[in-house]
């Protein structure tokens, strides 16, 4: 099954308000950046892809499976929500184990993958630490580990670096790039630098509509960087 997402004329309304309007995207393996100011509709799009919101119109297929087949789609998707948190009184291992059970992973696979993933995100020494004792960065890394616990073909991360210090942000971006080697990683953020450093392909969302999609380099064109290109595209509006 080829990892790809095809979004065709997707729309999502909240009452009379259009949160997404005629969004069409074709996302292929690698890091894909979704850029837009706060309120542009990024989280809505992420939540539709994660089967947490039903669409109002259009179609979405994930690896050839229509999004309406939510159970099948959930097998393929790992999701790190914007405000990731887990029961604070649980230990790191217990939290991962619980989410592993909910992903229907067998016991042996759970044990093996939890150990390997916590090592990969540098939390191998925190197995018995309670979640509430983790720092913001550690919690975000735990979030990534839980999102890829069931080895999904697609990883959706929503504003993952907000609130992290610069060092932790760089480490987090490197981790995402590593993960994206053999799957789709959709990075939704309003932080231009995160996209510039990690993504080959991007889409820019504004007021629920796609105003650009394609290669990052093409978007930058002759400008000095993504930030400048983005500001120009948005008409100099404040992000």
């Amino acid at each position: 099954m080829k990892p790809e997402i095809i979004i065709d004329h997707l729309s999502k309304n909240f009452g009379k308000r259009e949160a997404l309007r005629n969004v069409s995207l074709h996302i292929q393996p690698g890091m894909f950046g979704l850029l837009g100011r706060n309120g542009a509709g990024k989280t809505t799009l992420m939540r539709v892809l994660a089967t947490l919101l039903h669409k109002s119109g259009g179609s979405v297929t994930v690896c050839g499976i229509p999004i309406e087949q939510s159970k099948e789609v959930r097998k393929l998707i790992g999701y790190l929500p914007q405000d990731f948190s887990i029961y604070p009184g649980m230990t790191v291992y217990a939290a991962m184990n619980y989410l592993g059970i909910l992903s229907e992973l067998p016991k042996a696979a759970r044990k093996e993958r939890i150990t390997a993933l916590l090592k990969r995100v540098n939390l191998e020494d925190c197995l018995n630490l309670k979640v509430k004792a983790l720092s913001g960065g550690m919690k975000r890394r735990l979030g990534i580990a839980q999102a890829i616990l069931h080895d999904p073909q697609i990883l959706i991360v929503d504003e993952p670096t907000a609130g992290l210090d610069p060092e932790e942000r760089i480490r987090f971006r490197d981790l995402l790039c590593e993960i994206a080697e053999n799957r789709i990683v959709i990075l939704s953020t309003h932080i231009v630098e995160d996209i510039e450093k990690t993504c080959q392909n991007i889409a820019v969302l504004d007021k629920g509509q796609i105003i650009y999609q394609g290669a990052l380099q093409h978007f930058i064109g002759n400008e000095r960087g993504l930030e400048e290109a983005y500001m120009k595209q948005m008409g100099g509006h404040q992000r």
Binding site: K71, R74, K75, Y79, L99
Partner: peptide, 17 residues
Amino acid sequence: RDRKAGVKELLYSRKYS
């Protein structure tokens, strides 16, 4: 506590029925 701990979306997106 699912709402209080903010884990609802995390639980919803898992595979289980």
